[in-house]
């Protein structure tokens, strides 16, 4: 049978060429589908690891005695013999204790830190506080920023003047400086002998305050744009109240913008927390944050022990990349330009 025969055969009369019923689904190849799922996959993995670290075998297995507590607290004893072991795949890296006979020379997916704790387990544990701090901060920042922005953008007048000027003042401050100031202000000063574990809330509060002004601006600008749209005037002309217009007409329209911005904001806050931790200003709870881990390893960089800093940095980098990719996907999904007459 020739090719032509095959083609002709496919168009048999039993199969109608035009389906009269539901239109056939058209498959459209979309760009970046694999990266999207990789990003989602990584975020799911990191979130599950962060929440369930204590009971997840791939994490607790790496810790001495199979308990993640041993990966978070400072340890003594035989563990020390395992300190600063390079990752197993980094065969070229020379371990510190290579001279000791009969001891392991490489350990784990990411190596060990200066206390002999497994870095992979610590990085997964570190996700817990890093994500918690950034997530809570962006949530509160969104709630407050959206409220302020909508009120300012819809009611205008003196409320707008006050909120807008405050926002401008806050934005004029160098962000990191402001964060350092806020964290120092909220934290009780450390006394020389007792470095009491610092609570989470000062850093969260500082990041919330940091995230409010840009969000307020964004929401305000969007609200102003939507408040002048005809459908809002139409709702008003049908007797809708201010609060109803704000929450039923305007808010649903700006939520998509907010969602994609929230992800970018969260990535920025993870970095901000890292920067603060690097300066020794973040939390010092038993479970580290990524920033604190990078900071701890930085002292050993010159000695050629690169993995202590680099491994948590890699995890942080991948997480930020995933969040930003997902933000892009959301922005593309929602940034539909409608016909504006």
């Amino acid at each position: 049978m020739t090719d032509i025969d095959v083609i002709a055969h496919q168009h048999t009369p039993e199969v109608p060429l035009i389906d009269q019923g539901a239109p056939a689904k058209v498959r459209v190849r979309k760009r970046g589908r694999i990266t999207k799922w990789l990003a989602i996959g990584w975020l799911v993995f990191i979130t599950i690891s962060a929440i369930g670290a204590n009971s997840l075998p791939y994490i607790s297995h790496s810790c001495p005695g199979g308990s993640t507590t041993n990966c978070s607290t400072a340890l003594v004893g035989d563990i020390l013999s395992k300190r600063e072991l390079p990752p197993t795949w980094a065969t070229w890296a020379t371990p510190l204790n290579k001279t000791l006979p009969g001891k392991a020379t490489h350990a784990g997916l990411m190596g060990t830190d200066s206390n002999g704790r497994d870095l992979f387990a610590r990085a997964m544990l570190g996700a817990r506080n890093s994500l918690l701090i950034a997530g809570l901060a962006i949530t509160f920042g969104l709630a407050i920023g959206t409220f302020l922005g909508m009120v300012a953008g819809y009611f205008r007048g003196w409320v707008d003047t006050v909120i807008d000027n405050l926002t401008n003042v806050m934005l004029a401050f160098p962000a990191l400086l402001l964060a350092i100031f806020l964290v120092t202000f909220f934290n009780k000063p450390d006394t020389a002998e007792s470095a009491a574990p610092r609570p989470l809330w000062p850093i969260i509060l500082a990041l919330v305050i940091l995230s409010i002004p840009p969000l307020t601006r964004l929401v305000r600008a969007n609200t102003i744009a939507y408040a002048q749209r005809d459908f809002v005037v139409a709702a008003r002309s049908l007797g809708a109240k201010g609060s109803r217009i704000l929450f039923r007409e305007i808010l649903p329209n700006i939520v998509p913008t907010l969602l994609s911005f929230a992800l970018t904001g969260m990535a920025l806050l993870i970095v901000a927390e890292g920067a603060l931790a690097f300066l020794g200003l973040s939390v010092e709870v038993p479970i580290p944050t990524w920033g604190a881990m990078i900071s701890a390893g930085s002292e050993r960089l010159r000695a050629g022990v690169w993995w202590i800093s680099l491994m948590p940095a890699l995890v942080m980098f991948l997480t930020l990349l995933a969040i930003n990719l997902l933000g892009d996907v959301l922005a593309q999904r929602f940034n539909r330009r409608e016909a504006i007459g």
Binding site: F231, V233, A234, E249, P252, N253
Partner: peptide
């Protein structure tokens, strides 16, 4: 009550 000029913009796009 009022009917507006442009029906493209006078209905809420997300409701």
């Amino acid at each position: 009550s009022m009917i507006f000029q442009d029906p493209m913009t006078s209905l809420n796009p997300v409701m």
